[in-house]
Computed example of a mutant assay.
Amino acid sequence: MNRTYNPAYSGVPDSQLVNWAQQGDNAAFAELIERHTPTAKRMAYSILRDQSDVEDEVQNAFWKAYEHLGQFQQDAKFSTWLSRIVVNECLMRLRKERRMHLTYLDDGANGDEAVPLDLPDKSPGPELALAKSQVGGVLREEIRRIPALLRDVFVLREVQELPMPEVAGRLGISVAAAKSRLLRARQELRLRLDRHCGRLGAATLLG
């Protein structure tokens, strides 16, 4: 992917840049990446909490967007489409790491003296850290399962922390409709999290 940046594209709307990029204009795609890199990195960091992992997965997301740009339909915003790819890449990385951690725990049960656990440094203790990690995994997985109509507004507002007028603008809907979807998304997420309370505890999920 050639990411040669052309400043002449700086005032062109995303929709036109996408059209040009779909026709083979790599500089137009580079402009799209320049515009959306800060938001993509903020979103990835809110999920991964590791800058090195963020850089890797944002780059992976950009490559995937480039490879599948021909499938993008202009009835959606490019920013929303790209954000969904970034979130999916980050969640896939977390699932891989979770499987790796479970493998380490199984190895330790077979007689190893040390069990390697990737726990947050700021945690007051390994038990609490592991619990919070599990809760975070549940939360991210249930956000992913929310219907796309509700998930998009939730991610833009709660993850990216965008003001509601900007959320509405990105989704091409009114502020009132965006607020309505956000309320429904929160209700949907709470119902989904309630199903896990028996295993993790409601206090842990809400803490």
Score class of each variant (00 low, 15 high):
Gln160Val: 09
Leu105Cys: 11
Trp81Leu: 12
Leu162Pro: 08
Gly172His: 07
Leu82Lys: 06
Ala168His: 04
His101Leu: 13
Leu139Tyr: 07
Ala176Asn: 10
Gly172Ala: 10
Lys179Glu: 01
Lys132Ile: 04
Asn88Lys: 09
Leu82Ser: 03
Val159Pro: 06
Pro120Cys: 10
Asn110Trp: 06
Asp121Tyr: 13
Arg84Val: 03
Arg170Lys: 13
Met92Ile: 11
Arg140Tyr: 11
Pro165Val: 02
Leu162Met: 15
Val155Ser: 05
Arg93His: 12
Val138Thr: 05
Lys122Val: 09
Arg181Pro: 01
Glu89Lys: 11
Val135Gln: 00
Asp112Arg: 15
Ala168Arg: 03
Gly172Lys: 02
Val153Thr: 14
Glu141Arg: 12
Leu130Ala: 10
Arg140Pro: 09
Ile85Gly: 14
Gly108Arg: 08
Lys122Tyr: 14
Asp112Gln: 15
Asp121Leu: 14
Val155Cys: 04
Leu171Tyr: 01
Arg144Ala: 15
Val115Asn: 09
Glu113Pro: 11
Met164Gly: 03
Arg99Ala: 13
Arg95Val: 03
Phe154Arg: 01
Leu128Val: 03
Arg98Glu: 14
Asn110Ile: 11
Thr103Gly: 12
Ile146Gln: 02
Leu171Met: 13
Glu142Lys: 02
Ala168Trp: 06
Arg145Tyr: 01
Ala114Val: 15
Pro163His: 01
Tyr104Met: 12
Ala114Lys: 14
Arg170Ile: 05
Arg157Ser: 01
Val159Thr: 04
Leu117Asn: 06
Leu182Met: 05
Val87Asn: 09
Glu166Asn: 13
Arg170Tyr: 05
Leu182Asn: 00
Ile173Lys: 02
Leu119Cys: 02
Arg144Asp: 14
Asp112Cys: 11
Leu117Ala: 06
Leu128His: 04
Leu94Ser: 00
His101Tyr: 07
Ile85Lys: 11
Glu127Ile: 09
Ser123Glu: 08
Val153Arg: 00
Lys122Arg: 12
Glu113Ile: 08
Lys179Cys: 04
Leu149Asn: 11
Leu149Gly: 13
Val159Asn: 14
Leu102Asn: 14
Val159Cys: 12
Leu150Gln: 00
Ala131Gly: 10
Ala178Gly: 02
Ala168Gln: 04
Gly125Phe: 03
Ala178His: 05
Leu119His: 07
Arg99Gln: 15
Ser180Val: 00
Arg93Tyr: 09
Leu82His: 09
Leu182Tyr: 04
Val87Arg: 14
Glu161Lys: 13
Leu139Phe: 07
His101Met: 15
Glu142Gln: 14
Met100Trp: 08
Tyr104Arg: 09
Ile85Asp: 13
Ala109Val: 04
Arg144Cys: 07
Ala129Gln: 04
Ser83Gln: 06
Gly137Val: 05
Leu156Pro: 01
Gly137Leu: 13
Leu91Val: 13
Val175Ser: 13
Ser180Glu: 14
Pro126Cys: 07
Glu166Pro: 03
Leu128Ala: 00
Glu127Arg: 12
Pro120Gly: 02
Ala168Met: 06
